[in-house]
Every structure is written in structure tokens, then in C-alpha cells.
Amino acid sequence: MKRLLLLSFVAVSFFACSKDDKKEEPPVDYTNPTVLSSALKVQYGVSVKGAMPVGTGATGAPVLNVANNNRVTVAVNGRYAVITPELSSGKFKGYYLKVTGAESYFKVDFSQARDGGRKAAHATHSLLRQDGEDSVIVIKLPEDAKLDTFKIEYAVYDSSNVVSNVIKELIAVLPPAGGADGAGFVGNWQTYRYKDAGEPEWTMAIGADTSWTPLKCINGKLVYSQDGTPYATNISNVLSDEGTFNANGVLTWESKETYSYLDEIESGCANLKYVVTNYDDKFRGGWSYNAARKELTLIYDEDGQVNGDNFEVIVYHILEFTPTRVLISSPDGYQTELAKK
């Protein structure tokens, strides 16, 4: 009995000590450049201890555009910061990148296979219409980082390992969804209408757009003729183009469209045959709104689950913003009006 009591006392003492000894892990100090660098993931990047190679201004060395020095790049916390090196002269094979003040740097080789940016299969008039960039610097930010801004510096190198000048850049990290400023975006939206830069007329997003071609029936077949009868030869019918801005910064969007064209070879004069293709483009990514700059940033990255190849970042400028509608302009001047559902 005494032995059992002794064992019970030891067990109670052990658990009591274990509970008292348990301490909360201190938060990660991402303001430390070396700590932050170790938490970043750079696509195709290998971390190397030591000082980053820099150029010597040798003849024939690649030269980066100095106008981009101290440029600000916007990123959403927990997602990607994307930087496009801009050459003034020369060619490059890869780049070196480091967080300013860190004890290591990343080396990336662009000659490795890349799938290119995320591109919708067919969407042409929605938030899915923009294409991604190739040969970009892709930095995945840590999920739990309490970041505001941090500095990086990078240089490119060519096939002979000759290094360019160094460009410094500031990464401004936005909170997902943009906090209180982004509350007005939260909810379900649909594309209402659109127009190209400089165009006075709007086009409704939902509905059919038909192209007509003058054709004549000759020997039982349809052939082109300027004085022929107009036939519907191409029909693009957008069925839906809508999505949801979630309060946690997740954005989902889907565009459904049917495209038909007249098969003039297989068609008879009285028996028209159309080839029909159905498109269903969708993505899941992140979003953030900066009220001060009137910018809506969209990150097409399948909610951070992609490997870095299949993503895209686009910053839209907000032209008008009400509780029920928002008018945005893409980098190429293309305007889209969204309506809240």
C-alpha cells in the first residue's frame, strides 16, 4: 500500500511540475532580417550563407533599370510578393536576392522550367482576363508574419555569371481584405458591364455577342459573298461572371461561357451545324483593399496552395466605390463595373 501511495505521489508531482514548467513560445521576431529571410520561400531559390554577389560594372554586364531603385511593391500578408526585374541592357539567366541586413541570400536560376502565369482558358471580360508575368521574382511570405514593410535587394546574372548592378526595393505588406477599409467589398459580386480604354460605349457582361458573315448557297454549300445573306457565324454567350470577397481575405470567382461557331464545311444551306464549346473558368485567391491609394489588389494563387508557377498579382485602380457598385480600371486602362448581388 505504501508503494502504491508513493507511486501516486510521484505521478501527481510529475504532472504538476510539467504544467508549471510549460511556457508559451515567444512570437517570431520577423523584424530581424535573418529570421525573416529564413521564413521566406523564393520560387526556385536556394538559400546561400554569406554576402550576396554584386556587380563590378564590367563591360557587357547586364544592367538593371535604376529608375526602379527604392520602388514600393505591394503584397498581401501570407501570400506572394512579386517583383519584375527590368533590364536596361544585356540578358540574364537568374538573379540573387536578399533581405537587407540578412546573413544569407537566395540564388535563383530562370533557366529551370516554368509553367508561366495563371491564365484563364477563355475569360475575356472579367476579373479573370489579365495574364500573368514570366521571369518574375516570387517571394512567399510567412503565414503568421506581423509585417508592415521590409527591404530587399536583388541583382541579375547572365550565362557567364557576370552580375548586374543592385536594385533595392521596399515590400509593403497589406493585411488580408484590408481591415475595416475593405469591409464594403465583403459579399457577393457580379460583373455588370465593361469597356476598353478610350471607348465611349459600355458592353453588358452577361448575354450573347454574335458575329455575322454574308454567305451564299452555291451547289448546296455556304460560301462567303459580300452581297450574301448575313449568317450568325460566331456566338459568344456569357452565362455568369461572379464571385465572393470574403472577410478573411479569400476571393473566389467563376466565369461560365458558351462559344459557338458555324462549321461552314459541314453545314448545308438548310442544315446549319455549329461547333459548341463550354468554358468554366474559376479561381481561388486573395484580395486586399488600400483606401488611401484607392487600389484593389488581387492575388490569383489558389489560396496559397500553388507551387508558385501558377499565380498572378494584379492591382486595380478604384474609380468609383458605392455600397452596391464598384468601378475598377486594370493596368491597361480596361474598365469593369461590378454590381453587388
Score class of each variant (00 low, 15 high):
Lys119Trp: 07
Ala145Thr: 06
Arg118Gly: 12
Lys91Trp: 00
Val136Gly: 02
Arg79Gln: 06
Tyr157Gly: 06
Phe106Trp: 15
Tyr157Met: 11
Ala102Ser: 15
Gly116Asn: 09
Thr84His: 13
Gly117Thr: 10
Pro85Val: 04
Asp144Gly: 09
Asp148Glu: 15
Ala67Thr: 02
Phe92Leu: 01
Val136His: 01
Glu103Arg: 15
Ile152Leu: 12
Lys119Asn: 15
Leu97Tyr: 01
Ser89Asn: 09
Asp115Asn: 14
Ser89Arg: 09
Ala123Ser: 15
Ser135Glu: 03
Ala155Ile: 01
Thr84Cys: 08
Ser111Trp: 09
Ile83Glu: 11
Asn70Gln: 14
Ala81Cys: 01
Leu87Tyr: 02
Leu147Glu: 02
Glu86Lys: 04
Tyr154Asp: 09
Arg114Ile: 06
Arg79Cys: 05
His122Ser: 13
Phe106Glu: 14
Leu147Arg: 09
Asp134Gln: 05
Asn69Phe: 10
Asp134Trp: 04
Ser126Lys: 09
Gly116Leu: 11
Ile139Thr: 12
Thr73Val: 15
Val82Ile: 15
Thr84Tyr: 12
Leu147Asp: 04
Lys151Gly: 12
Asn68His: 10
Arg129Ile: 04
Lys140Ala: 06
Tyr154Glu: 05
Ala121His: 09
Ala120His: 06
Ser89Ile: 05
Val72Ser: 12
Phe110Arg: 05
Ala123Val: 06
Thr149Asn: 14
Asp131Glu: 14
Asp115Tyr: 11
